[in-house]
Amino acid sequence: MTAALSVQGLSAGYGAHRVLSELSLEIGSGQWFALLGPNGAGKTTLLHCIGGLLAPQSGQITVSGIPLQGRALEAKRLLGFGCAPERLPDLLTGRQCLEIHAAAKQLRTLDEGTSSLVRAFEFEPLLDRFVDTYSTGSRQKLAVLLALLGEPALIVLDEAFNGLDPASALALKRQLRERVAGGRSSVLLATHALDVVERYADRAALLLGGRLVHTWEAQELAALRGSAAGLEGAVAAAAAATANPSSAA
């Protein structure tokens, strides 16, 4: 079965500063993958490479088997990318942003999933207001709506729950879970919210110094849910083991 996302030997950075080194990663179809790591580990850089915002120095990215470098348009048709809320266009309304992304994805109108999320987010009154009048949470909602538009095969989100009120966060988690469970989408979520990862993710990986140093499979995550230390303890232990391999051995 073709992986929803495959990253092979990816190296990327900014000028002389290399952030990701020979990183490889695979996300199966209908899977929620959580990317963990401290600030500056390279999570956003990896997501920017997948979103086509940053050119990798080496390596290959494929979305559902379609290489992003060679067949970008085809690959991006399968991609829903949640951009940083502060990079949304200030002088467009929420509706106009949705219209542009819908046209780019060759949709005629909003899909049912996104429409229900608009209602759950209570976003309708904000649709005809300019983005520069939005609060941080409202911007986050719009960024998420744009990413989920058109039922993409791969949804890429960076700290998507930041600034969301509890009701909206719950609606988003349920929506993502529903799409993943139905095999309609896979999710790549970069986050620090370990409780979300424990409860909703199928797999998780720890990114440290531009490399994936540990991956937790579904069974391991399920086991961690019941343990005292939980994922928090497991992440700390994995980070310590990476920093000092001899003591871990």
């Binding site: 266009p89 002088l91 467009l92 509706r95 106009q96 942003c97 949705l98 219209e99 542009i100 819908a102 046209a103 780019a104 060759q106 949709l107 005629r108 109108t109 909003l110």
Partner: peptide
């Protein structure tokens, strides 16, 4: 909601 790239011009 009418899908269109036209709002880019409005921007």
């Amino acid at each position: 909601l009418r899908a269109s790239l036209r709002p880019l011009g409005y921007w």
